[in-house]
Design a protein around this nucleic acid. Sequence first.
RNA 1: GCGGAAGUGGCGGAAUGGCAGACGCAGUGGACUCAAAAUCCACCGUUCCGAAAGAACGUGGGGGUUCGACUCCCCCCUUCCGCACCA
Length: 817
Amino acid sequence: MPEKQYDPQAIELKWQKIWEDGKAYRAEQETSRPKYYLLEMLPYPSGTLHMGHVRNYSIGDALARYKWMRGFNVLHPMGWDAFGLPAENAAIKNNAHPREWTRRNIAAMKEQHRRFGFAYDWEREVSTCEPEYYRWNQWFFLKMYERGIAYRKKSKVNWCPECATVLANEQVENGCCWRHETTQVISKELEQWFLRTSTYSDQLLDDMAKLKHWPEKVLTMQRNWIGRSKGARVFFDVSGSKSKVEIFTTRIDTIYGASAIILAPEHPLVAELASPEQGARAREMVNARQGADPGAVEKDGFDTGHKAVNPFNKELVPIWVGNFVLMDYGTGAIMAVPAHDERDFEFCNKYGLLIPVVVKPKSGDAPAGVAFTEYGVAVNSGPYSGLQTEQALERMTADAERQGFGKGSITYRLKDWGVSRQRYWGTPIPMIHCKTCGIVPVPESQLPVVLPLNVKITGTGQSPLRDSPEFLHVKCPKCGADAERETDTMDTFVDSSWYFFRYVCPHDDKAPFETADIAHWFPIEQYIGGIEHAILHLIYSRFWTKMMRDIGALGEARLDEPVERLFTQGMVIRNGAKMSKSKGNVVDPDKLVADYGADTARMYALFAAPPAKDMEWSDQGVEGVSRFISRAYRFVTRNADRAGKASPVDATSKVDRDIRRKLHQTIRKLTMEFEERWHFNTCIAAIMELVNELQSAESEVSPGVLRETLEALVLLMAPMAPYVAQELWQELGRESMLLRETWPAFDPALAADEECEVVVQVNGRPRSHILLPPDSSKEETEARAKADPKIVELTAGKKIVKVVVIPNKLVNVVVQG
RNA sequence: GCGGAAGUGGCGGAAUGGCAGACGCAGUGGACUCAAAAUCCACCGUUCCGAAAGAACGUGGGGGUUCGACUCCCCCCUUCCGCACCA
């Protein structure tokens, strides 16, 4: 048969239709095969896929297809993180309704997904902006409210003037909005809904021990984010007042060295103790700190003139206000121990406060002119002098507790999750405000509280839902009087905290999911996504799972953690910068597919770098992959007939044996990579080598070996270039779907080398090669190496000190003189 | 400042203590062609008058362990990422 020219468009559209019509990717819930839940992070439907998505999904899809071929029952779903601000911004800009805008984008992106041939079970598609999904956000919210996990409090919030909404602490970066990197976040006091993530701090921390297959980097980031810190709280009386100041310290052992109490400028006591001028100065400090780079702000403060009593030695210390003390960490007040804390040292040094030394190094002297912050031995600390820091901490905490002026305490950086957003395009919080009954939850039977569609989005201040009378006005479920609905909507991180549970039962209208089905599919064997979600999404998801377990929603599934293995892929870089619209260095996936086909795009995404590393985009690199696929295609099509007529393998010639060995080595290599290392770039390189070698042997290889090799080649290509692989499978006269075929097995005997090329070194420098039968003995190997003429020449007249022999690999002759 | 990852030809990268540079890109020469594209073949780290034979050098820099180090250990430099006054 003459070779055919590779026409990716024709091939890919043909198989896309056949696969979709045949529902090839449907996950069946049955037990005859082991299940494998493979999840990739769901995209925000911005309108088009970007190359970061393509890379993420190409990695996931290769794995999904491999697992399928290994006989797993693969659950591989996809959905849309469809609520959020861009839809509202687009609505203002284009006068399109957020729902229409979002649905259009989803349709467009789904089309891209399909064109790429990603093997998703689209029957399980989840779109978080649809009532059938978000009603369960509301349902969970009610359950949490019942149990006090969801609550309302007045709180200072981070307000982004650009978004005109509240941001979670996690959404503030360097004092600016995470979306608007140059917009300073301001502080505002509002009634807000919160979820008690903080009560899960310890569990979130401790259960990390179960996340054995998560990247250490992610766990470290989460650990730092939770920020568990063990210390003590101590009360200082304010001299001449009934008030007390509570401070938090991790170094109560240094309390004899406290030379001041320093309050955060927002501290309530400031209003009580400070003069009006001082109060104004404190407010200035708060404003000045807003949005400033913490490292760059000079320490600033003032003495209130009041004194506090150190409960340990009854000494009076001045009470200061300092701009470097944080109100929302610990108690908002500290004891300054300048001799043993760098920040306190800087502050006290500036203002000429005392710097008493109360800890000495265990040996030697503390360096002069800086704070000695390490553990050592207590000095000048009354009855505790002479104690090692570890014991002093313990004893002084116990004593403070016994005498009632302090106690051991653990402080976390992690705060409760503020979920209120003054926004339209999100899940309505299912609560009602009644003048007589107060806050009343919407009865479960009335869910979902549907987001009204006829709302004008103006982008000004308050929640657009307040402008929808039909939505706003409601009868109180308790007393029947006129009442108002809550108009805040939920943070969209709520949606993504549990979407992967919904995939299991996407159309269930009785419950968020059936617990038996959760028990069947969970945990997720593999989750793949970007490192940028290491903290927020992945902590919230972990919290949500524990919360669902605790409210009984998981039933017999009783999960502590949803995700067994996490993989974070690198970014896509072009011209030295992350691909992004603002940098103007994006590659349009549609154009790529139109020019080269989906297989080339997918394969290049895997070929350019190992998945965990950033990958550099190169248009010429794409060309190279395209050339390879085309070459392989032509090779198989022009040899299909010859291979097709072949009888079983009749490998006798050296060429045949060489080809078979290369084939089985390639299968071994790819199997190892898919199972363990995921360096798909080297898989593709290995396939290229196989094709290169096959092509060199084209005229000599026997039909039987040719057939075996071509069939295996096509199977090996299937996870990474599924369309062309399927087409070539058909060219080889096979009708089955590759997804249902079995991944080829390698024969170790066939993969073994016939001869080993052993390197012979003299003093560690390679000088010669010898060919030996595999597994030759050490003695034999050494003798042959020493007999090599080159080695004889180089070692002549010298003393052989040592000979290192690594069978099948290497001999190193060490000589002297 | 703290934590993490990384640094290998002109470029992307390969090599899990054993021949550094697989595979691809770019480049050079050749075949095919009227010509070009495509394709195929060959060459392709640097230096040594240097094509071949041969040799030296070479994985950010310096030291160490080892018969042998891109790989392990120590120190330093650079880049990127995360956190950042967390008491």
